[in-house]
Amino acid sequence: MKTAILLENVTKAYKGKRAVDGLSLSVEAGTVLALLGPNGAGKTTTISMILGLQQPTSGTVKLLGGDPRDPRIKSRIGAMLQDVSVIDNLKVGETIDLFRSYYAHPLPLEQLLLISGLESAKDKMATSLSGGQQRRLGFALAAASDPEILFLDEPTVGMDVTSRQLFWDTIRAMAARGKTVVLTTHYLEEADSLADRILVINQGKIIADGTPSEIKANATGRVISFTAGASVTTESLLSLPGVADLEWNGRRVKLYSGDTDRLIRVLIESRVDMRDIEIQSGGLEDAFQSLVQNAAVS
């Protein structure tokens, strides 16, 4: 397989603080890669460096085997950034056509309108579109070059459920055609259902890397939840061995733990006032939570 993206020991520091810290990564062509992490984890900075918008403080970045700033490389990629990229006083169709003119072999306008679900909005002013529609226009622009690698920074923020569904279908179709897709997301469901490979980033470092099922299996994201009696406090629960973190929802409490089997024994032995006990092996969301929390503790 060909390597689409290669990062070697990449660091980006702002005023002494490391947004990205010694990150190495190799992505094979044809992969759908999701970068997952809390706000400020370094996802956007990483993407910006892969795209050549920012230069790493140290380390090397190779995109399609070359320098991301090389126009020949740029003509083979497409990107949707977090900014809403519409231009004033141009219609949707005109905006897409303008973008198509930048490439030697663009996709046809009709196809771009179709995959972004904007056929009926073609003659509307781009600035008059709703937030979700503007995001979809951004996607049409990213796809205009029929790119080998598509970068999507938080693509579905602001999209409604239907838009998101259409969007996911489009990404899957592109992946099926052998395109490489790199996306950052807050929606774990999105990463879970789209990606072949998930990279969990926190504080500028990779803390987990694998397929969605590997991430779920390896992570210590197990949860015990119960309705707590009046005597139960945050302090008393956190003092128990094996409680990584907890979350209240009314009197309902969720305990995150690496070993729920041991924790349930501890809870019972400590005579904690509990009703309606549930033990979950954890979805990706819980896996993600516990990964980020464990990384923060260690």
Binding site: R72, K74, S75, G78, L81, Q82, D83, S85, V86, D88
Partner: peptide, 20 residues
């Protein structure tokens, strides 16, 4: 026109295209 382009991230997006 210039400030709109810059505020809306258009210029940033153009830097990702092969347009010199």
């Amino acid at each position: 026109r210039l400030s709109r382009e810059r505020a809306q991230g258009w210029v940033r997006l153009l830097r990702l295209t092969p347009l010199p």
